[in-house]
């Protein structure tokens, strides 16, 4: 068996109730597919919450980043409850405060402004991934 190293799990809330949930989902996919494809994996939150043992085991062994749309912080709370506290949490509603000119309203398909915000969130996630891997490498 080969143990994968140098990976960070990204768990997003993907909430359907608010546009911020969609931003969390799109930002996470941007990290996985474009920004840090070799350093990240995603953990499916519904599977994780429903009892997916592979997902939970990964989050017990590898560092994780929770990406939450709103202050309920469901991704962070779920990860903490079933595996361990995420190393970092990115809160979309907090990132939005830094970019007040970017408005979000769509829950389904993102408009250009919303995509821009998703990209900003993705960049924050990528920075956290780098920090975590850098810390891990020094140990």
């Amino acid at each position: 068996m080969t143990l994968a190293t140098g990976k960070v799990g990204v768990i997003c809330c993907s909430g359907e109730d608010l546009p911020e949930g969609t931003i969390s989902r799109v930002a996470t996919r941007l990290v996985l597919e474009k920004l840090r494809p070799d350093q990240t994996v995603t953990l499916c939150l519904p599977l994780f919450l429903a009892g997916g043992e592979d997902e939970r085991a990964f989050a017990r062994v590898f560092p994780t980043i929770a990406v939450d749309g709103c202050s309920k912080k469901c991704a962070e709370a779920g990860t903490k409850k079933f595996s361990g506290k995420p190393v970092a949490t990115i809160l979309v509603s907090e990132v939005m405060k830094k970019y007040p000119h970017l408005k979000v309203k769509s829950r389904e398909k993102l408009e250009p402004q919303e995509m821009e915000l998703a990209t900003k969130v993705a960049e924050e996630i990528a920075r956290k991934v780098d920090e975590i891997l850098c810390r891990t490498a020094k140990k």
Binding site: E16, K72, A75
Partner: peptide, 27 residues
């Protein structure tokens, strides 16, 4: 799954369907 839920609650049956978000449901 996500896309069809939005179509139902926002376009096809907005007054009759409510969307339940799984993470807060579990919480």
């Amino acid at each position: 799954a996500r896309a069809c839920a939005f179509k139902v609650v926002e376009k096809l049956r907005p007054g009759k369907a409510v969307l339940v978000c799984i993470p807060p449901l579990v919480a």
